Simulated assay, not measured.
Amino acid sequence: MFSPHGPSLRELTVQALSSVERGYDLLAPKFDDTPFRTPDAILEATAAALPGRFGRGLDVCCGTGAGLTVLEAVCDRPVTGVDFSAGMLARARADHPGATLVRADVRALPFAGEFDLAVTFGALGHFLPAERPAVFEGVHRALRPGGLFAFPVGAPPPVTSVAHWAALGFDLAMRVRNAVWRPPFVMYYRTTSLPALSVDLMAAGFSVRTAALGLPGRWQLVLARKDTFIRAG
């Protein structure tokens, strides 16, 4: 499951008993050697499926910078990554010296009308459903009119599959852990279905469509467009 350079079981245990921020600070030096990093196949398929080229790009919850490679491939102007883990940002800075990296809570993004494209990879499970509207509203605010917010979503595995029961077991384990241990570590795989995400995106002011990525697991790219007009009220 992990490469020889990945974290040990002890290191993963310490991370799991930490807060999300502290856990990722600890994991950052070895994060790219774990299965938690978004695979290159998904990154490459996302870059290929994005409609055209863009100006400035924003990677929301950029981690060690895997998504910055997508932005650098499709954006003609400087790109920005935002994350609340100083450790992850330090790793991203080493690999992407040309990017602007900002430490911030993405539930309160400090941007307004600055970007043409925003992306995120593998991060939405770190937000409870009640927290997602603030994230999506912040992304909407950060984009220029007509800007695009894009991210990949895999189809739920069939109930007869090992993947389904593994995800269910992981989510149940996390709920038990968070019920008996503080600080909480929020990471749930079953709270980010495409219908639920679409509802929250539309409530934030996006129009939503999807494009197939042609990858195993029936991955789709969510393409959420910020309206070009200003809503009354």
Results as ranks from 00 to 15, higher is better:
residue 140 H to R: 13
residue 134 A to G: 11
residue 146 G to L: 09
residue 122 G to L: 02
residue 164 H to C: 10
residue 143 L to Q: 04
residue 131 E to W: 03
residue 163 A to N: 13
residue 121 F to V: 00
residue 160 T to A: 12
residue 155 A to N: 03
residue 154 G to A: 15
residue 125 G to N: 01
residue 162 V to I: 14
residue 130 A to Q: 07
residue 155 A to V: 07
residue 162 V to A: 15
residue 133 P to F: 05
residue 177 R to A: 13
residue 177 R to G: 13
residue 132 R to K: 12
residue 138 G to K: 03
residue 173 A to F: 15
residue 161 S to Q: 07
residue 156 P to N: 09
residue 154 G to Q: 11
residue 123 A to G: 01
residue 164 H to E: 13
residue 125 G to E: 05
residue 161 S to C: 06
residue 129 P to T: 10
residue 124 L to P: 00
residue 174 M to S: 13
residue 144 R to N: 03
residue 131 E to P: 07
residue 160 T to D: 11
residue 127 F to Q: 05
residue 166 A to T: 14
residue 138 G to P: 04
residue 146 G to N: 08
residue 128 L to Q: 11
residue 152 P to N: 01
residue 166 A to R: 15
residue 158 P to R: 09
residue 144 R to D: 04
residue 163 A to E: 15
residue 166 A to D: 12
residue 172 L to D: 08
residue 156 P to F: 07
residue 163 A to Q: 15
residue 154 G to S: 12
residue 144 R to H: 10
residue 150 A to E: 06
residue 155 A to K: 10
residue 140 H to I: 11
residue 176 V to K: 13
residue 167 A to V: 10
residue 140 H to P: 03
residue 147 G to A: 07
residue 160 T to N: 05
residue 138 G to Q: 01
residue 173 A to C: 10
residue 148 L to H: 09
residue 122 G to M: 04
residue 176 V to G: 13
